[in-house]
Design a protein around this nucleic acid. Structure first.
Lengths: 184, 184
DNA sequence: TCCCTATTTGAGTGCTCACTCTAATTTGAA
DNA sequence: TTCAAATTAGAGTGAGCACTCAAATAGGGA
């Protein structure tokens, strides 16, 4: 993969992989579907990827990374910033958001994936907890953590429903969940 | 299917189908896996079911029905009753709860399934809204509906996370979400 | 007990799966 | 312009898929 053509083909394959996972899940994604959508033959696919698994894991990593577009900002954003960033992810990166949900659901039976998902969740809850602690310094640590954990999981429920119903008004419902942090 | 043996085999196949969907998703479930776990050969499977799809849809229906164990009670239970019933479902009917989440995720690309899921969701939100309206007669209808919608989706987020992490303390987090209805 | 039918057996069918291989083509540095 | 390496083409491999079927077995009403 040193020529422009190879890089472009790689991009098309990854875009296609994302779409297939979003539509058919990790278990229902096939090389043939990936290749057909990418306009590529199996030989090209295996010239660029070692296996189907490798392509899927690459797409998986991209989806998890996309949830938090700016990890450097940790500690500097408000709870509302974090919620708004997630709303934007869900609404504007449709396929990646669906991949994100598919990963969560499928992770249970794949130890490596499961570890990655649980680690990601933990980091995310910490990030939310830090923002909440700034807004509500009166609350004790365990209260902060429980609220953050509830909020993160609940937001994922919003994302799950939106992945079924594109009319679902993500922003409104997500902002309602903010109460969970801000009210006493 | 008129003899006892046939009924027992059918039950074993459905239990196995549930387990396979919970573990591998609708797309990753195979006849071989179903049959192996049920201790049955393909011929027996096809003596009792027309197709893999039929067995899966039967398990799907059971999972959706199990979420609301007592639909006759509509209008007579409090919001807390409803939340507690869902907590019980998630904690005590592990496989069915995972099937329930798998259905939601997979429904997007299957029109029949999608219709069923969206209808189910609508009924469920109505049920929660009715309970909330009783507890908070001061709120107007659209406020009630939005709170119910948020609560139902958020609870599904709790179920989703619990399907990955069996240690997740469903009851505590679910009760926190009750605030969404009860606080002003 | 008989005998029709439900049930089970297990090999077999055609198809699709992930993946491989060789040969043809394209690329771009020298 | 040359040429080694990158890329693509596309047929092929063995395994596993959903599903079938004819024959063997087991069940229970008469």
């Amino acid at each position: 993969m040193r020529y422009k053509a190879g890089l472009e083909t790689r991009d098309r394959i990854l875009e296609s992989t994302r779409a297939q996972i979003a539509e058919h899940g990790l278990e229902g994604t096939t090389i043939k579907n990936i290749c057909d959508r990418a306009g590529v033959l199996p030989g090209s696919f295996y010239n660029l990827f070692d296996s189907k698994e490798q392509a899927i894991l690459t797409a998986v990593r991209a989806a998890i990374d996309a949830v938090d577009p700016d990890p450097e900002h940790a500690g500097r954003d408000t709870l509302e910033d974090l919620v708004n960033a997630y709303i934007r992810f869900i609404e504007e990166q449709d396929d990646l958001a669906r991949v994100y949900i598919r990963i969560a659901v499928a992770s249970r039976v794949n130890p490596e994936l499961r570890g990655r998902v649980l680690r990601h969740h933990e980091v995310r809850v910490k990030r939310f907890a830090a923002a909440l602690a700034k807004a509500r310094p009166d609350l004790d640590e365990s209260e902060i953590n429980e609220r953050a954990e509830t909020l993160v999981s609940a937001l994922n429920g919003i994302a799950l429903h939106r992945s079924i119903d594109p009319e679902f008004e993500v922003a409104g419902y997500a902002h309602r969940l903010l109460q969970l942090g801000t009210t006493s």
